[in-house]
Amino acid sequence: MNNTFDIQRFGLLLKRKWLEFGKIYLITLAVVFGVILAAYAIAFWPVFTGLEPFNERKISFRVPLFIGLGFLFLTAVASSYFAHLGQKPKTIIDLLIPASTFEKFLAGVFFTGILSTISYLLIFFLTDVVFVANLQDAARDKVYFFSIVRHGLYAPVYILPLFVTSIFLLGSVYFEKFHYIKTALSVMVFIGVWMAVVFKSGELLTRGRHAVENNPIVHSGDKSPLECMLTLLLIVLTIVFWVITYLRLKEKEV
């Protein structure tokens, strides 16, 4: 018997987890779907009923809605995944289920990082397609939401869902209670301290000096090196957070 990973056991674990986690997950997804539907209905209804003509401003709500709601949904799901480990009776059952810690961790990554992202993208794009498809033919091609993605986004954006969920997944296993608030506060404090350190150290290091004009990274006109570095940084940080989550799960006690 492989004590680290077994595909059949992993499948059983996903099935078992769905029994407990699936209900909360589907309710959250339904709420998210309701919010998207409501936002689209409010914006498109006057156009459909002929009260107002269609213009680009009518659909400017989509980007902030997509980012804001997506962030809330992904972080809420990730933050609740291991939250039950703060309760002794649930922890005992979870730790003693005959699956490896790696499989339990991987199931967490699957539900929070992969399934949540895919399902969110799917319901957002489908809602968008349904509403936009009912617009006049002339406007339709320009305003599909996925047409923004089709031309390619800033590369780190593709990593962001995994990065954000990795932080909140760690928070769900690290804190015993109030996982979401504590994780959000920790991230804010960390960003604050980090920015202060970068700002202060930058000020100290560059005091009395002039900026170099032809910095190959910042001023080349080609943003790809910076983009690559940022993408790489996010990938590395995501992996680091996952490793810490795995170790934290491994050392969890009742």
Binding site: M1, E20, L95, L96, I97, S100, K250
Partner: peptide
């Protein structure tokens, strides 16, 4: 302490406080 599946399937633990879905 290693919580290996091969051992976990041979342990039946009935705790004092428990949770059922």
């Amino acid at each position: 302490a290693k919580r290996q599946p091969a051992l976990l399937k041979e342990i039946c633990f009935i705790p004092e406080e428990f949770y059922l879905p």
